[in-house]
Write a protein that binds this DNA or RNA. Structure first.
Lengths: 143, 143
DNA sequence: GAATTAGTTGACGTTAACGTTAATGTTAAT
DNA sequence: ATTAACATTAACGTTAACGTCAACTAATTC
């Protein structure tokens, strides 16, 4: 077994996702295909776990479908693609366009997130109000 | 038609939910059964629209299933139950218990929400980081 | 009062996001 | 070299949250 790699069972335990879910995410392209052992076992690194955790968090917090998550996660991948080796290959114009695109997408996402933050605070305000009202009602009892 | 009431089509338009969805929410108890016209048409008030909008927001922002939403919405209902007429009916001890329960539930929800707020900010931070990196890459091009 | 238009229930259809099982192959440990 | 423990694909099952008819009734408009 190569150094620093693990099989799906450990990834499952460490990420909190079921093995089925991990394979499913690969199947629909949310995580890239991994390396395989000679026998065909999927081999993962710590980076995979990291990604899975972030996926779970984003899904949970943003309430996104996996399809919507793709776009979100795509940003990360695109940025990765713009590194090192790629820098010299592509022509500057195309690269600039792509980066502008990344910026635009990021801005779009940030706008959506800001909206959600606003909404979530309004929901919290409601809860705090409930508490206040409940407290007041309690006080009235001991009259 | 009674004053200030509307039929499902208008509610659908004003809430942004489909008629099917509105009936479905009633079916599974997310909204209470409404008054009916003599012929059996559902009659809604502005309060229903308000509730539906808040349901949509909470669902959207918190990423809750409808079942999970029930508990959340239950708070509102319980509090409503603790008003006016009910105050004299129930005995103080029971009422106090119930109110304490409401407070406890509210606190629980607030904790969850705070956690989500934290996570969502961390996601936003990631996005801002992507932007920074993309900007930097762009600057490097015009060298 | 006839024809639209909008509402009702009932039931079956759909999609996403996995769970579960079966048949089969791989690794690790004895 | 066997076994036990874990992996793979394939395929069918499940659940939530609706969409979409169909058959029928009520309300509105001309």
């Amino acid at each position: 077994m190569s150094e620093g790699t693990m099989k799906i069972d450990e990834v499952s335990k460490r990420s909190g996702l079921s093995k089925r879910t991990i394979r499913y995410y690969e199947e629909i392209g949310i995580i890239p295909e991994t390396l395989r052992s000679d026998g065909g076992f999927r081999l993962y690194t710590i980076k995979h776990i990291d990604r899975l955790k972030r996926i779970t968090m984003a899904k949970d917090v943003l309430g996104l479908s996996l399809k919507e998550l793709q776009e979100f996660l795509g940003l990360e991948d695109e940025l990765e693609n713009q590194r090192a080796e790629y820098r010299k290959v592509d022509d500057p114009k195309k690269r600039k366009e792509k980066l502008a695109d990344i910026l635009k997408t990021a801005d779009k996402q940030i706008t959506i997130i800001d909206q959600k933050i606003e909404n979530i605070h309004s929901i919290k305000a409601d809860l705090l109000d409930y508490k206040k009202r409940a407290s007041k009602l309690m006080d009235e009892i001991t009259d």
